[in-house]
Design a binder for these strands. Structure first.
Lengths: 206, 206
DNA sequence: GTAGTCATGTAAGAGGTTACATGATTAG
DNA sequence: CTAATCATGTAACCTCTTACATGACTAC
């Protein structure tokens, strides 16, 4: 149910094609939600059938066509309904944490590689998120600008603040994961120096 | 692929029935991974077919039977392979963050309810995780005790340390989410006091 | 007897990943 | 002419959620 809401929310800024939406889900929006085109195109068709969005078929060159989607009143109502209803907090599954829980079945080296990648991933993510947050704050993000243009000025502050708040959560998350990975690497050094043995090292792999 | 590994890992402590595994995934293991019985029973059958586990059919009373699963050598090899290979870090999807990103489509009240639930959820989770971490550290957890009994003493420190490390990550996560929710509640107060308007408030719901 | 626990399934459907597939348009 | 970009799909497969379904055993 979340993908459709993200699609509706983006379409509130301006009408666009599936391709444009795919790009957003591969670019800026990807910081919060990502989806491949194989998920987006069928979803758009479904939402069109349900009347949440309306497509305008426009010729593209001489032989091709494209469909420009616009959010309908029903779509706006749906978006508001979703925003007004509490979203149940579901416990998250985290494969990385489970992996760490069972590091003893691997080797110190494997655990180090894993945590190294964890560190790299969140370090890069933190950089991207922080940069994007700055762009948001300076209102340099095209999608945001178009959204703001369509809304009265007294709404602007809240719109920007909520986005900064949401991204701030991801930034905190990234910082937390970086600290966790570093702590893990230190733990590995300590254990190895103390001569600890691992289950996975004890028996050779076939 | 992760559920099967969690199942294998639990079975390294001792052989048990699907029911026992269901209970673990509804109890202690649920802190890191949860799964309903409708997922566990078919998965066990599949793993049995693949030779990762072996079932012993045991009579239960006069008319009933139960299947006690034991991890096989192939299963142990699979568990080690998984622990040794780096697990790709996938970007997480977070519906809560996306929801917060679009708070302007709802009302201050709806956002407050949402963040209140977020706060409650992670406050409770933090309490549970911290309690469980203490139990782990004191080696009061039955499953851990049985695991340790089957392994030489020089492995014990690392086994316990990795589990504490993994749960420590979840504890950090919970603290971060608590701080985020509180920050959000403060933001809502500030915006409302400043007289900010929301898109969702502007137009009445049908 | 009855409530709680032990025990094991099936099925429909949503959501997500990866791969397969195609072709037009545009800028160099 | 050729590469990049624009544009739109389908299909197989896996995971997860929710609901439906059944029944034996045990302690009171």
């Amino acid at each position: 149910v979340t993908l459709r809401l993200a699609l509706l929310a983006i379409l509130t800024a301006e009408p666009m094609t599936g391709w444009d939406l795919v790009k957003y889900f591969d670019g800026t929006v990807a910081f919060l939600w990502r989806a491949p085109h194989s998920q987006i195109y069928p979803q758009l068709r479904k939402m069109e059938e349900e009347g949440l969005i309306e497509a305008e078929v426009v010729p593209r060159g001489e032989h091709a066509e494209k469909r420009i989607y616009r959010i309908s009143d029903l779509g706006i109502a749906e978006l508001k309904r979703w925003a007004s209803e509490p979203l149940p907090v579901r416990p998250q599954r985290d494969p990385q944490r489970l992996h760490a829980n069972y590091f003893e079945w691997g080797s110190f080296e494997a655990a180090r590689v894993q945590l190294g990648e964890h560190l790299d991933h969140y370090t890069a993510a933190l950089r991207d998120w922080e940069r994007f947050s700055e762009d948001l704050e300076a209102r340099r993000v095209p999608l945001l600008r178009r959204r703001l243009e369509s809304r009265p000025r007294e709404e602007h502050e809240a719109i920007v603040a909520f986005k900064l708040f949401a991204f701030g959560g991801e930034i905190s998350r990234a910082k937390m994961e970086i600290a966790w990975a570093k702590e893990g690497l230190a733990l590995l050094d300590r254990l190895e120096a103390a001569g600890a043995k691992l289950t996975g090292d004890a028996i050779a792999l076939p």
